[in-house]
Design a binder for these strands. Structure first.
Lengths: 185, 185
DNA sequence: GGATATTATAGGATTAGTCATATATAATAT
DNA sequence: ATATTATATATGACTAATCCTATAATATCC
């Protein structure tokens, strides 16, 4: 389960609470690894049980106490092993495409509408990506070196290029349908 | 759950058994909607309970009897409604990228190896895509019209373009790292 | 003769992920 | 005064998906 290793990866920068982690996920890897709050807390418990992380309660007077987790030596080893292990091939499901696959029974206008709304969504994603570099600046402190920051930026680049390619394709298909390339029913 | 609608979409072409469906999924939409055999059978049961499909036992002397499912009027309506409904936005998880994100602690060679193996995998996917058009020919009978066939081909195109864009990016990153663009540790 | 593959359906167990909700305090906005 | 937001953790219920195994007949390969 990659969420375990993603959390381990962040704890490797510095000790963090579940709450910290949620904010970090939401501002850094959310475009390719969203994490549910409840899943983060449950995974932290599991990491502790497995000896890959240790928990320390930090008392606060004004707010609820924090449970701060830090990575152990065993955790660091596990993280390193995982980094060198190729992930199992996994085919992500694409709900837009499964609709396109069966869209033939719709009218031309209805089909174009499916593509238009998909294109609109990708444009929204692209806009979000444009905002990430600024958000990332705020978290640059977590990065020990420019090397780690470079890797971070690479994942952004990947998302951006993939969304851009997807949008180009969607716009091309819309153009072709409007150009009469979709066969009659 | 889109698998329900994907099955309904195929049943809309002609009545099929769970076994037929498994083969069809594996040769047409497997690159963006893989379906597990046991999931198909369970979903067929659910569709029947819901009145979207009806089952008929076709006895066979030499082989186990087939349970052939056909779509009902209610099923056709549900399929059409779904086609006009935008899917919930869903962010697919990308295990390659989450590794890249934390790859900064590895050596340059180890990082290049991660990208090389990702590129190798995408090249394999691209090769699989090249074989799909022939496989599809065998199932062309399911398509009532060239319109449906066109939609089928569009999904292939999407997968191909996306894989191609991804490979271009991976090869560009490999080139840049070998060019010394990855900062020192 | 024995092993494996094909046709055909099905259920148990488990995991990953989602959604909703609960609890508690303090600060801020309207 | 009231509502909302932020900080902080946690559990219950559920769905989708995966993996493994079982069953049963026939056909084919070595």
């Amino acid at each position: 389960m990659s969420l375990e290793y993603a959390i381990l990866g962040f704890l490797n920068y510095k000790p963090l609470s579940g709450y910290d982690l949620k904010r970090i996920f939401d501002t850094s890897v959310q475009h390719f690894w969203p994490a549910d709050q409840s899943q983060i807390y449950r995974t932290l418990t599991r990491l502790t049980e497995r000896g890959w992380a240790e928990m320390e309660i930090v008392e606060q007077s004004d707010r609820p106490d924090r449970k701060v987790y830090h990575i152990t030596a065993a955790g660091r080893e596990a993280l390193h092993r995982w980094l060198l292990t190729p992930p199992h091939p996994h085919i992500p499901r694409n709900a837009d495409l499964i609709q396109v696959f069966f869209a033939g029974q719709l009218s031309d206008d209805e089909i174009v509408a499916i593509f238009e709304r998909a294109a609109e969504r990708v444009r929204g994603v692209l806009k979000l990506y444009e905002r990430i570099p600024q958000q990332v600046e705020a978290y640059r402190e977590y990065m020990e070196s420019p090397r780690e920051f470079f890797c971070w930026m690479l994942t952004l680049e990947a998302g951006f290029k993939s969304a851009q390619a997807n949008l180009n394709w969607l716009e091309d298909v819309i153009r072709r349908i409007k150009n009469g390339e979709m066969p009659e029913r």
